[in-house]
Design a protein around this nucleic acid. Sequence first.
DNA 1: GTTTAGCACTCGATTACGGCGAGTGCTAAC
DNA 2: GTTAGCACTCGCCGTAATCGAGTGCTAAAC
Lengths: 346, 346
Amino acid sequence: MELDARKMQILQAIIDDYIMTAAPVGSRTIAKRADIFLSPATIRNEMADLEEMGFLEQPHTSAGRIPSDKAYRLYVNSIMQRAKLTDAEVRYIRDHYSKRLDEVDEVVKQTAWVLSSVTKYTAMVLAPQLHTIKLKYIHLVPIAEDKALAIIVTDTGMTRDSVIRIPRGMSPDALERLGKAMSARFQNCRLDEITLAEFNALSGEVAAEREFLDGMLRSVQRSMAKDGRSVELSGATNILNYPEYNDRDRARALLTAIEERDVLYKMLSEATNVEFSVRIGNENEDESMQDCSVVTATYKIGKNPIGSFGVIGPTRMDYARVLAMMGQIGRSLSEVLTNMFEEERN
Amino acid sequence: MELDARKMQILQAIIDDYIMTAAPVGSRTIAKRADIFLSPATIRNEMADLEEMGFLEQPHTSAGRIPSDKAYRLYVNSIMQRAKLTDAEVRYIRDHYSKRLDEVDEVVKQTAWVLSSVTKYTAMVLAPQLHTIKLKYIHLVPIAEDKALAIIVTDTGMTRDSVIRIPRGMSPDALERLGKAMSARFQNCRLDEITLAEFNALSGEVAAEREFLDGMLRSVQRSMAKDGRSVELSGATNILNYPEYNDRDRARALLTAIEERDVLYKMLSEATNVEFSVRIGNENEDESMQDCSVVTATYKIGKNPIGSFGVIGPTRMDYARVLAMMGQIGRSLSEVLTNMFEEERN
DNA sequence: GTTTAGCACTCGATTACGGCGAGTGCTAAC
DNA sequence: GTTAGCACTCGCCGTAATCGAGTGCTAAAC
């Protein structure tokens, strides 16, 4: 059997309707649409075909049809046309990024909030993966007899610092020399890719302090990696507004999975490579997510994709709108973060 | 009418039973208990009295009785005896604090997790209120031409740092002198109590840089206060396990309030003064919390109460056990944090 | 005076049932 | 290929009947 244009049109109509109402769609409903000039009976025949092809499902005889995961996949890939946000919506999003946000975690929180408030789904934002960023130089500054501050400057112009312990009696000069040597050796390396092996290749004064430097680097890496593991959440309870989660146990299962964050972290960090990703129902690896859809997008600092964000909602998600909104939010978010670090560079 | 010993005993029996089963308690159930030698009819009479006195409520005629908020209050104040944890429970809690936890926020997260896993209620932990801590000294260290690091050392021996911008051309010496002057002036002041007014009283070189110093202090205060506003949550979905939240709208209302965090922050920060606090049902200020109970306790660094934590559960909470557990967790938590900062002092 | 057995009564929960209506699949006519 | 007609299915909803846990009251027993 072939999926001709008419079948497509009918399928689209069914999906559109189901996205709005969450109720099984009958042939009459479709026949009444202004853009469809067929009788209910004809539609019924087509629907039977579509069901046979796996695009529709019937909760029970004598109910209408609902789209299957496969139908949504087709919809996202071929039928759906990119939605355009209204001016008001674009303004709403922009406005929420125009106020003073001067810390990364504020921006992340704000993004989660805007995303959930605008989509009415559950929003999640993976914090910037700063540990994957490239090193420009390390600055070691003594602050007490046995303590120093390691200041990392990245190639995006961002700085991060971390208090470290130094061997007693190490002079400020020695510390500075060590910093310079480290900078020279590891410039343009990704922070998380500097390994112990590379320390062993060092020589001279630097080699002698290998142990100290390694410990220092670990502590810097650890503190940056930890930030990067955090997933900001907003609107988790939004899912309770959708009838598909009227069932207490279903709702609990999903909410619990969301609360754990591990699954979310996994999904978001895997999605940091692809600009947009849509996972529908059973396409999700994690079992607890197999009856909902997850849409993710990435954001950047400068030109580097540095993190991702997404929404979780029922499979009958309004994909076109969500993707449009996430595009807009991604742009705003990238812009704010990029400015933030550009500014820091000066 | 008087609340004699027998009435007390019956009330306690009803509360005990209701805490376990969440079902209205009938006279027969109580009469069958091994420690009560009265017939159902007698119990019924007593129950009618207790209802008249406001300790019991009847969901409808011909159902059993359930304890009122007033009954729980009496129970917590007078009837309940402090529960003793089993060795296994104490060990469980201790074990979860014995592993390496070297950042404040890890300890906070761990506490929330342990508390919810041990009580099966929703747990919340207010991060240490570091901004209320007393200043020992400020160290200003230049790290770039127009940037310096402000390092705050508190009287608990803890350090915190924050990157600040400095006027171009300020010499390292000047910076050091300013740090010294600030330290001398504000030693032993609470960080959050240093106000603009006090700057105006300064003189000499320090006065000239008043604006810069004020800006710096604000930024340090802001960054510390922000940490202190964070409320860590764990087990939010636990409430879905209690039949009182079978109702979808009730569950959503509470979960939404919990997700907002504002209410939780308010409750926890108010509770930072009292070692233990129990708020039952309508004793809670916030409307969304009026059908549940909130138990909080404080934790310390050294001798200073520095934060609080608590659980949210149905009013038929097992108060005795919860209080015992929170006592134990409070001790472990205080110990870990105190060690952490004692160690930092060396 | 207190306690208890007995009993009529209340009321939510559960089950059973019939009608309604949305929707289908099939057949036959166009 | 399309459509009107029709018998049929099945979940939903409202009503009625039944059940049972639990009560309050009365009167007798202690």
